[in-house]
Amino acid sequence: MTKVLSAPDARRQEKLQAFDRLLTIMDELRENCPWDKKQTLESLRHLTIEETYELSDSILEGDLPEIRKELGDLMLHMVFYARIASEKKAFDVADVLNGICDKLIERHPHIYGDVVANDEETVKANWEKIKLKSGNKSVLEGVPKSLPALVKAIRIQDKARGVGFDWEKKEQVWEKVEEEMQEFKKEFNAERNEPINKEKAMAEFGDLLFSLVNYARFIDIDPEEALERTNKKFIKRFQYLETESAKDGKKMGEMTLAEMDVYWNRAKTLK
């Protein structure tokens, strides 16, 4: 007798079939397409980074159809890397998937073991402790060196917090922000307009940014997302300035700052 699948089980079968279809297509492309045959782990790397940023853009835009498309592009890359590695007899996609499954089970003892963790902070702390037991020499070892500096600051602070190295109250963090602001102002000599020691000023500016990232974390703001939203807002307003001034027969680079400010202030009133 044939078992009739329930709706959730039927959907699981569709997912498995879709993944199997992707594996089949990947095999066919790797064996028959001139471009796909040439690709290496190294040649795909910069393309994967580009795809990741495209996914990030679609998430910030809240564009679910585009997120779906970008996830597909990234999924293709993951399968592509695994296919190349299998040709080198290093590992295949099954090894990759089983590896992450084993890792998730090991690092969630509150789900798959007898450890109790009733809040997010406890889960994070347990995660970092397990990583240290697994052979990591430093809590910060898992932070990629090539991460953009702002994102890296967020990850460093998150990981330090996971083992209890953190401020207790947001007021303490804000005091640190103000302290760093004063130190930067002193090095920059903003009021006296004197020559500055660029190296010292840069160091103080870095400390100020780091402390602001820390404060943002305490009030549950993602600094990377906040800055990107501001970038997008500036781009929108500046492009309005360009477009509307051109309609009036004016050219960028030939207007005074006061003239440009008229369009800029108009742009600020738009949603």
Rank of each mutant, 00 (worst) to 15 (best):
P8F: 06
E14I: 14
K15Q: 15
A18T: 12
R21T: 14
L22Q: 09
M26Y: 09
C33S: 15
C33R: 12
D36N: 11
D36M: 09
K37A: 15
L55M: 10
I67N: 04
R68S: 13
E70P: 15
E70Q: 14
G72W: 14
L74A: 12
L74N: 12
L76Q: 12
V79T: 13
F80A: 09
A85M: 13
A94M: 13
V96C: 11
D102T: 11
K103G: 09
H110R: 08
I111F: 04
D114M: 01
E120A: 00
E121L: 02
E121R: 02
E121M: 14
T122Q: 09
K124Q: 04
N126F: 03
N126C: 03
N126V: 06
N126L: 02
I130M: 06
N136F: 07
S138T: 00
S138M: 01
E141W: 11
P144N: 06
K145I: 12
L147R: 05
P148F: 05
K152M: 07
Q157I: 00
R161T: 04
V177P: 10
E183C: 15
A190I: 15
A190R: 05
A190G: 08
E191V: 05
R192D: 03
N193D: 05
E194L: 01
E199I: 00
E199Y: 02
A201S: 00
A203W: 00
A203V: 00
E204G: 01
G206T: 01
D207P: 05
L208V: 01
F210V: 03
L212A: 04
L212E: 00
L212C: 06
F218I: 05
I219L: 02
D222Y: 03
E228N: 15
T230K: 03
F234L: 12
I235L: 07
R237M: 08
K247P: 05
E254P: 03
E254R: 08
E254Q: 11
T256G: 13
L257D: 15
E259M: 09
D261C: 04
N265P: 04
R266I: 03
A267G: 07
K268M: 04
